[in-house]
């Protein structure tokens, strides 16, 4: 039986540092998890426009690959991969999809794992806000409370909710493949998210798509407060480094 760390195409291609951080967290919690070569794409971006038969073929291909590697558990670091692996794979494959899939945040939030991580912010007390990505809040098994449990467990860190949070969060405007074609959507919506960042000193997100949009809009608008990927934030806390410094 193999436990797989599913990095996701976007993070793998664009955010290697984040991948390293995610791997560090996962390995700390369960050293049996592995990275494999040539992991196929979950297919998320094709779901909006692929036909059912095309998608089924793809999903079957990926599942066969999983079987060939004897995969029993997956932890994804991308919110999109989590959503699609848990929603569409069972839909297309039924009983034939037997893998237990968790998002990194769910995995971290498990009681024993949180205890093991024992997170403490060594610097000054810090207020942060968390952006709920659509892929996590809309999933079959929504990931909504877990990030809050994690943040609340960290000594010296306080969560300041955005006005729109949990199921009512504002979408960054990048989803559904819209980002590649119509960036204007995130120009407005990602900015709205930053507008709600009042008492939080940084904006955390667990989705690389949201991060990409938020990061760009932050730069375009010369916003001072940083947007940080959840796993990057956690690793800095683990290492006793100031999480707000790049």
């Amino acid at each position: 039986m193999t436990k797989l760390i599913f990095l996701g195409c976007l993070s793998k291609t664009k955010y290697q540092e984040t991948c390293k951080n995610a791997i560090k967290i996962i390995k700390t919690l369960d050293s049996e998890f592995e990275i494999l070569e040539d992991v196929p794409c979950c297919g998320a971006l094709a779901y909006h426009i692929g036909s059912d038969s095309e998608l089924k073929t793809h999903v079957e291909y990926v599942n066969d690959w999983f079987k060939s590697k004897n995969i029993s558990n997956i932890v994804t670091i991308c919110a999109g991969c989590y959503n699609y692996l848990t929603k569409y794979y069972p839909q297309f494959l039924g009983e034939d999809f037997k893998i237990e899939v968790k998002h990194l945040i769910q995995f971290m939030a498990q009681k024993e794992n949180l205890a093991k991580l024992n997170l403490k912010n060594l610097g000054k007390p810090l207020k942060v806000s968390y952006h709920d990505a659509c892929h996590l809040r809309n999933a079959e098994l929504p990931v909504i409370e877990e990030p809050r449990i994690i943040l609340e467990s960290i000594e010296n860190v306080e969560l300041k909710e955005l006005d729109n949070n949990k199921k009512n969060s504002i979408c960054c405007g990048a989803g559904g493949g819209v980002y590649s074609v119509f960036k204007e959507n995130s120009d407005h919506n990602s900015k709205l998210i930053f507008d709600q960042l009042k008492r939080g000193k940084a904006l955390l997100t667990a989705c690389p798509f949201c991060y990409t949009a938020l990061y760009r809009v932050r730069n375009d608008n010369q916003i001072k407060k940083p947007v940080i990927k959840f796993e990057d934030f956690i690793v800095k806390i683990m290492e006793g480094v100031d999480p707000l410094v790049d």
Partner: peptide, 14 residues
């Protein structure tokens, strides 16, 4: 979007 779809199905990475 079309190109992404092609790449996902053919190369397994968009």
């Amino acid at each position: 979007l079309d190109q992404y779809k092609e790449k996902i199905f053919k190369e397994k990475n968009p």
